[in-house]
């Protein structure tokens, strides 16, 4: 057993203190130590986007950050987004547009899409595709995902 460190962080608005091996990555910590299995582990080298989640307000790859690096951070996973309703309209739009089939990419896709509708907000299909380019989906062919994101961008602009 190698080096371990104590970390304290906020996960989905709850404070957590745990002792973690320094080699443990963030997404494994969330899944295995905290039971938050909504964030998926795909490639473990930052290519597929399945582990994308929010750390201190920005979307990052959960597999390319160590749990020990998240000490003092605030993290929101797909479970947290489900509770706080921040992505409720996006979830509805994904459902309406059949923007998922197997659902494996969806938590990461939702994180990237949420960053787009909250910060970029450009109602342009090419810009949406570019922003989601770091998230693989092997079911939908992306068309319906872009449809859903565009719908939400347009709906939010009217509010």
């Amino acid at each position: 057993m190698g080096q371990t460190e104590n970390i304290t962080l906020t996960v989905n608005d709850e404070q957590v203190t745990e002792s973690v091996p320094v080699r443990l990555n963030l997404v494994d910590f969330l899944r295995n130590n905290l039971g938050l299995t909504g964030s998926h582990v795909g490639c473990e080298h930052g290519v597929c986007g399945a582990c994308t989640l929010e750390v201190d307000g920005v979307m990052v790859r959960g597999c390319l950050m160590l749990a020990v690096q998240a000490d003092g951070s605030s993290i929101t996973t797909i479970e947290g987004l489900g509770e706080n309703q921040r992505a409720a309209d996006l979830q509805d739009a994904f459902k309406r547009n059949n923007s998922l089939q197997c659902g494996y990419c969806t938590p990461g896709m939702m994180a990237s899409a949420l960053e787009y509708v909250e910060t970029i907000r450009n109602p342009d299909r090419d810009a949406i595709r570019e922003h989601l380019s770091g998230n693989y989906c092997r079911c939908t062919g992306y068309q319906s995902i872009v449809d859903a994101v565009l719908e939400v961008v347009e709906e939010r602009a009217k509010r």
Partner: peptide, 12 residues
């Protein structure tokens, strides 16, 4: 910059 990896990677 928009060509350097993906948004979530550019955040780190």
């Amino acid at each position: 910059l928009p060509h350097i990896a993906h948004a979530a990677v550019r955040n780190r």
